[in-house]
Design a protein around this nucleic acid. Structure first.
Lengths: 230, 230
DNA sequence: CATCAATTTAAGAATTTTGTAAGAATTTCA
DNA sequence: TGAAATTCTTACAAAATTCTTAAATTGATG
């Protein structure tokens, strides 16, 4: 992996081209989009590693676009903006952007921030953050369709069961304690976490496992929690 | 997981305290260090999720400290500095820092950048040290998956057995007395340390050793303690 | 409002882990 | 070599954790 694709979203031609020049020699390929809607289309087609997003654009602005992208993907987004007031910065960062640069920007700083985010993203190893389909030894979970199948046969999970399984499969191999599962799926407190989670785990096993008593996928790690075995 | 630990490294008392105030109400616990050496010590002890690092400090400066930390760990580091020249920014970012804020900074911006980095770090799921796997002559311990394997075959250790083995493997070659093992794993007193530890050592050996009577990995040093042989 | 599916609660059963104790085996050192 | 110190082994008891079941509750839908 030596080339990274950076998507520049800005309605001003000169800015897009200036950025392309600044990022030359950095193992970076610049792909350009005129506004948020363009950007979303490009994201469908290309394998993008980082987005530089202008705030002020026709059709769909940068805030909306960032928000939209974050619904499904986790690639680094750096906001570009002429507004330098702090409120904007806060707003930009809270919609899910990873960094913020005000125009006019210094080319070296731009390049440094881009490289910093790329390095981080790549080093963390998951620049495929949002694969739509997660598959483990015949157990397949499709995130957009919200379906689960085992050996080709589609199963009928309830909404809750699906959420738990998605959490475990997205982090396949990682162990989640009952408390952590409850917290991340329910997002509210309970006094009966152990029983509740255990019951749902049971039901999921009943559906995805051939023999729920000897689970092939959804394993317990005694004293620690549950995981989907890789 | 609702509390994050942020380490503030700065030699000025007022700055450290100001930051603590700014980050209050953000589910953030602020831990303070006076310089790079302090910081490294804190990192040994505490589970830190993000570092705010000043550049100008006595003993060990922020650049050196960042560099040092990056040798082994991947947690987010935000550089704080009074210098605003771009060259410094570049330098800061290229030694492995994840973001850069110039003093005097706006409290809201600080909080936003901290949250942005934390969110990213946490969402990517691996807020564990980069050294995830410890390997000794075929015996491999994976810290995030909490698994242990010998010659490629995965073993099933209990939570306690795993903790003991992790302690010994993380400090591979170092000898731990029974008292020390008990203290560091159980964190409570006992009147029966010798028996208890011995029993668990036995159980671990039964799982990781081909011949538990002639251990290849988990060796005893008579009168002193146990170690994992390098 | 009746019905059905989904979820929660509760409690006992089943399983796994951990602690204890006591004697056996090994090492050290006089 | 023999006594003392230390570690090893075993079996069982206790504790902790997870599993299972069934009944109660909730929530949506016609």
């Amino acid at each position: 992996m030596s080339k990274y694709n950076v998507l520049v979203v800005d309605d001003e031609d000169e800015i897009r081209e200036a950025i392309e020049v600044y990022l030359r020699n950095e193992d970076i390929k610049v792909i350009k989009a005129k506004d948020g809607i363009d950007a979303l289309n490009v994201l469908e087609e290309e394998d993008i590693h980082l987005i530089l997003m202008d705030i002020m654009m026709p059709r769909m602005d940068g805030i909306k676009a960032t928000f939209k992208i974050r619904e499904t993907r986790n690639i680094p987004i750096i906001i570009l903006s002429a507004k330098s007031e702090d409120t904007d910065k806060i707003l930009g960062l809270n919609i899910g952007a990873d960094d913020y640069i005000t125009k006019p920007f210094n080319p070296l700083e731009l390049a440094a921030r881009v490289k910093s985010q790329l390095r981080r993203y790549i080093s963390l190893g998951n620049y495929k953050a949002t694969e739509d389909e997660i598959s483990v030894r015949g157990l397949i979970l499709n995130k957009s369709a919200k379906t689960v199948s085992v050996d080709g046969e589609e199963l009928k999970l309830t909404a809750l069961e699906y959420k738990i399984l998605e959490l475990l499969m997205e982090n396949c191999g990682r162990i989640f304690s009952m408390e952590e599962i409850y917290e991340r799926v329910w997002k509210e407190p309970s006094y009966n976490v152990e029983n509740t989670v255990a019951v749902h785990i049971r039901r999921i096993r009943e559906k995805i496992e051939i023999n729920p008593k000897e689970p092939k996928y959804l394993k317990v790690v005694w004293g620690i929690g549950y995981k989907i075995e890789k």
